[in-house]
Design a protein around this nucleic acid. Structure first.
Length: 230
DNA sequence: GCGACAG
DNA sequence: ATCTTGTCGC
């Protein structure tokens, strides 16, 4: 697969790409088993163009880490709300291609179709890599929702322009919810079900939390670039 | 025009 | 996102 380069795009061109990619999105009930799930995330030093990308593989539903891929890359596209994919997908794709084993489902840090043009980073990555994805974000980008009951597991629909695009999911009692949405080859109920099964003892579900941990350690030089088996 | 705004 | 200090609660 040719390496993507989004660095010279204007936001107007990026918008056009999102509108075109939207026609390639597949939102449907999960029709495959999940034995290996993965988490993807990026870490970087403020004001630096170097980004540290990583994808960690875990056995499902045991949530035991089995390996991870780490890649360092230069990025020029800035962070612009609504265009996160153009900044992070190229590096994540590099990490994806270094994986020695592909997960059945990838959890991306950010939104799936809970996006102004239904093309959040998880949906974008899913289309480009042609692989099932879901998005798991800490904050809402667009849409409205009712606060879910305070009990762990409670969830309410995230609605944007009269359409249910995701859900606010309470992963711990009396703690702020996370926002999940399908990215590719998943639907909202299936996304809530899978992410609910990925919750350990923290607010952030294990795939995302462990991906964040490992890319951070990678950025700090505590772990080497490349694929590592655990 | 005004507020909101993933990471 | 990253960094930092301080507080609350199990």
């Amino acid at each position: 697969m040719a390496t993507l380069n989004y660095d010279t795009l204007t936001v107007t061109a990026a918008t056009q790409i999102q509108n075109e990619m939207r026609n390639e999105t597949i939102i449907q009930a999960r029709d495959f088993p999940v034995n290996i799930i993965a988490g993807a995330d990026i870490s970087f030093n403020k004001f630096s163009t170097t980004v540290y990308a990583g994808i960690i593989l875990l056995q499902f539903p045991q949530l035991i880490p089995i390996g991870y891929s780490l890649v360092k890359k230069e990025v020029l596209f800035p962070y612009v709300p609504g265009y996160l994919a153009f900044r992070e997908v190229p590096a994540l794709l590099a990490a994806w291609e270094n994986l020695q084993q592909r997960p059945d489902l990838l959890v991306v840090d950010g939104h799936g179709i809970a996006h102004p043009r239904r093309m959040g980073i998880a949906a974008h990555f899913g289309v480009v890599a042609n692989t099932p994805t879901v998005g798991c974000a800490k904050k809402v980008l667009c849409g409205k929702y009712e606060e879910p009951p305070s009990e762990k597991g409670s969830n309410t629909p995230l609605v944007f322009k009269n359409e249910v695009v995701g859900a606010a999911l309470r992963t711990k009692n009396a703690v702020k919810p996370v926002f999940v949405s399908p990215g590719y080859r998943m639907d909202v109920p299936g996304t809530v079900e899978i992410i609910s099964q990925c919750v350990g003892r923290y607010r952030i579900p294990e795939p995302t939390r462990l991906a964040h941990n490992i890319v951070n350690r990678f950025r700090l030089g505590e772990v080497p670039e490349g694929f590592t088996l655990m």
